[in-house]
Design a protein around this nucleic acid. Structure first.
Lengths: 224, 224
DNA sequence: TATTACATGTCGACC
DNA sequence: GGTCGACGTGTAATA
């Protein structure tokens, strides 16, 4: 990794054009060749950057300005004109053992598979990941009135989730053994627009509380 | 900005749980208090981070380990256990004059609002951001034959854009004052799949040249 | 504050 | 190599 604190101006030309006037910034070059220009604020996103793979060429201008030109295979370019270097540090850090994540996402589906009645009273699970030719439905259930219910589970309920569920229900409706099929979108939070579209498509929606569900689940486990 | 090259292990607990085993990494602390932990590769995204606003507390463990605890108002925490500092640099960079961008969707919409006939001959703008209950249509226009035309503008035309436009047209069709309503997807580049789906839904599509449009726009301005 | 839609989104999984 | 969906998405604009 190389860390350069320098007064520089930057231009990116590619999917859009973005320019930075001269100022003191951090230029970070990682071992994989990616380059990022950071200001002293504004979250972790750099002002300008170029991801690997790319090629970096350096040239000295006659005006004491060092010019870096970073280009990627798509022809996008990042040009950094370095007027003054304040600090320059470089050393390999070595491989990183990597990040391990423990997500909330998969757990939510497990919990609801165990407690389908949290979605609708009397609902019983038929199968998780019920296959259709456009992909698996998260949960296929049977309601107390005998109707099939397709449940789509998301952490956040947005428009694409409604479309996805609508497609599933449409497919499942073609199966005479399942028909009629209702659809329910379940999420921790469902956006107003998604609610509107769901209702419009004849789909139900419900927000569930993850912590509450987990509490119910662990409470029941304690009974055994 | 503070740059720390250190052997450290990191834990984030918040929307999910993520842990990093000990390794040498860059810890970047910006003037606004945001913290990012970078490996020597993997694009510009840090392995772990905590955005501003947050509070950083430092404590010395009895085992020669320096412990940073970063917490934000939502109660999410980032904990960094620093075992060994290899390099520690700190200095304010000052305010950044900021980034100027050209070529984002907003610009494209402005240009097309000024020149709807670039989409279709004789098209006239009725209103930008025409509201519907599932979101605003980028441009609502009137064609020379009197039909309403909903224009959806994207930098890149992909499947979701077609579906979005289809939803808008479906909504607008319900308004007897607008009916019949045609839909046009406008983008700098439209993927073949999106073209096919658009045609399938009875929607038109057109690719526009941003630089050309800008040229037309500045050319017309010169007339006044 | 909350809601929305864009982003040089990035990133991984799967085909 | 593409397509798709998730993301601790972040971010700015808007109501």
């Amino acid at each position: 990794m190389r860390l350069l604190i320098a007064r520089c101006s930057v231009t990116y030309a590619g999917r859009l054009t973005a320019t930075l006037p001269p100022a003191v910034r951090l230029v970070m070059v990682k071992a994989d060749g990616c380059v990022a220009v950071h200001a002293d604020g504004g979250a972790y996103k750099p002002l300008n950057w170029m991801n690997a793979p790319n090629t970096l060429t350096e040239e000295h201008g006659d005006d004491d300005v060092l010019r870096w030109r970073v280009e990627n295979p798509q022809g996008e370019t990042l040009e950094i004109a370095i007027e003054e270097i304040r600090y320059d540090w470089s050393e390999p850090l070595g491989e990183d053992p990597g990040l391990s994540k423990d997500g909330v996402e998969a757990h939510l589906q497990e919990l609801l598979a165990d407690h389908p009645d949290a979605v609708e009273d009397g609902l019983e699970l038929v199968r998780r990941e019920y296959p259709t030719d456009i992909g698996p439905v998260d949960l296929l259930c049977r309601a107390s009135d005998g109707a099939a219910v397709a449940v789509e589970i998301k952490r956040r309920g947005e428009l694409p989730a409604v479309e996805q569920l609508a497609r599933y229900v449409e497919r499942l409706e073609r199966d005479p053994l399942l028909r009629p099929v209702r659809g329910v979108l379940v999420a921790q939070r469902i956006k107003p627009q998604a609610r509107t579209l769901a209702e419009d498509r004849g789909l139900a929606w419900i927000e569930v509380d993850y912590d509450l569900l987990r509490g119910i689940d662990s409470g029941e486990l304690r009974l055994f």
